[in-house]
Design a protein around this nucleic acid. Sequence first.
DNA 1: TTGTACGCGTTATCAA
DNA 2: TTGATAACGCGTACAA
Lengths: 334, 334
Amino acid sequence: MSVTIKDIAKAAGVSHTTVSRALKGNPVISAQTTERIQELAQQMGYIPSAVAQSLLSRQTWTIGMVVTTIADPFVVQVVEGVEKVAQAANYSVFLATSHNNSDQEMAVVETLHRRRVDAIIVTSSRVGSLYSSQLDQIQVPIVLINNQEEGEYLRSVAADDRQGAQLAVEYLISLGHRRIGYLGVTDRPKSNRRRLAGYQTALTDTGIALDPSLMVHPPAKTDFERGQAELEKFLAAQTTAIFCYNDAVAVGLLVACRQRGIAVPGQLSVVGFDDIEMAQYVTPALTTIAQPLLTLGQQAMEMTLRLLDGQDVQNQSLACELVARETTGKPSSN
Amino acid sequence: MSVTIKDIAKAAGVSHTTVSRALKGNPVISAQTTERIQELAQQMGYIPSAVAQSLLSRQTWTIGMVVTTIADPFVVQVVEGVEKVAQAANYSVFLATSHNNSDQEMAVVETLHRRRVDAIIVTSSRVGSLYSSQLDQIQVPIVLINNQEEGEYLRSVAADDRQGAQLAVEYLISLGHRRIGYLGVTDRPKSNRRRLAGYQTALTDTGIALDPSLMVHPPAKTDFERGQAELEKFLAAQTTAIFCYNDAVAVGLLVACRQRGIAVPGQLSVVGFDDIEMAQYVTPALTTIAQPLLTLGQQAMEMTLRLLDGQDVQNQSLACELVARETTGKPSSN
DNA sequence: TTGTACGCGTTATCAA
DNA sequence: TTGATAACGCGTACAA
């Protein structure tokens, strides 16, 4: 197997203790022996075993990251942010996928603990609250990113859905729109509610009355289908602009518009949320709200480092940004 | 810290050996004690330490995966394939990024070995050959995916560049094209050469003479710029179709066409390679060659499992597929 | 059926 | 300045 300090000790004719000390430059060892042993270790291709070190130090320098799926470009950026900060702090990242399945999520968290990761970061957790009972016995810090579930007793970093939604609708208002719709979802209640709240705030702040018929939450299998479902009703209600729960919904809506011959943004303006990769490539390019994904990951990891350091932390809410593209314009004057 | 078998032993009034045996259902322990201890372990929230187990068994059930960057949707799919097979075989995956930097790549491989991963998978390695000296001392199987470097003494899984390129050009020929160009790159010599070879084979097999002026490799900083650079020359040479090294080059070419008012595919057909996400969203949607990314990852992990099992393996070459979209058509009849 | 002792590779404590 | 020894948590050969 791998070279150990004992192998080096044997080769050098000293005890393994001396080798251990020499390798970390302990000044108590004579300069000559130190140099001789370091050279020998180099030659023999010695690389210390993090496993043995971890057993003793009770630290693995590892953080476990749970994501729904790595196939989602959304989570990829978050992971990148985490990885960046982690690497700079000498931590490695274990990636584990939950596939949006609660059982699976619990299972991977257990696997991570079994591997004695020093901390756990979970994106879009479905069951964050359940961890506490499982993990409060040990002291494994858990940080949640954009958790969908209620209950704020866990550490978390999240994009400010409300502020983002408000930004989107205020932009539409500034373009002159007054009949603005909201196309929401039913299966992510927390973020949907907050985006809806932002939508409502923007309208009422400007003195525009809320119209329940303009806020719809169609049931559908995929977000894309959701976007396609409700176009007719919106048009019948004189809607000139629609703010969608996310980009997938918005793209579905755009396709429906093309099929019906509705010009975007000529007859209808559309705004999405998330700024997924696709948003910039659809025609016309989608105006949307960008979550600070990279920052989300970085902040989560920085919060984790602080927790690891025994410091106190506060939950964070990060501002979103408007990305104005081609699906928004002034309302048609008919 | 965490609950250990000794804690359970103390609580149960038995030795830690008994606990260890009871927890894995060793039949030598009486049914009552076994049940009693398992229940106790459950209550106390015991989760065995993989660290301690690894130290003893010299196995970590961990494989290290080195990627250039996780930001590339290309690698994401490969990672997904690896993860899928790994998880099914009870392995966890350590993800490490090299940022296309040789030093960095060597460094992360060392980190992975320090953590005593059971095997290493590297995508698009720049320095695959250098590992051998570093790692042949220990027995860590390394599998390379789409490695750019020459030398076949390492295990590898790769997409068949040559076959893919041939597929692309044969398709153009079947549409009626005869003046077909190749727009290549200079900084990935291995795959470029193979794609060029596929291009040439397709032509000569059909009895079309090779024209050196139709094979260009413009120097440029980005693939995108490369695509923009050579349009004029191709047009002057009566080219009716161009096969590009990859999609990024192709997209650059498409933009150049739009700027020059060249209709695609009316006046010029374009084919890319890789089928990146963007390919389906550009207008017109890009015809391209898809690498079997998921399969690439799966096969690499399966090969790894076989190596871990002491079996013999053979390097693999996986077939690519044509994805016909909108940038290809019959040549204009002028 | 259960317990004792040892070792995995490393570091820390104490003694020489 | 160096070395012997114990410990981290677990599994296993051997003894009881």
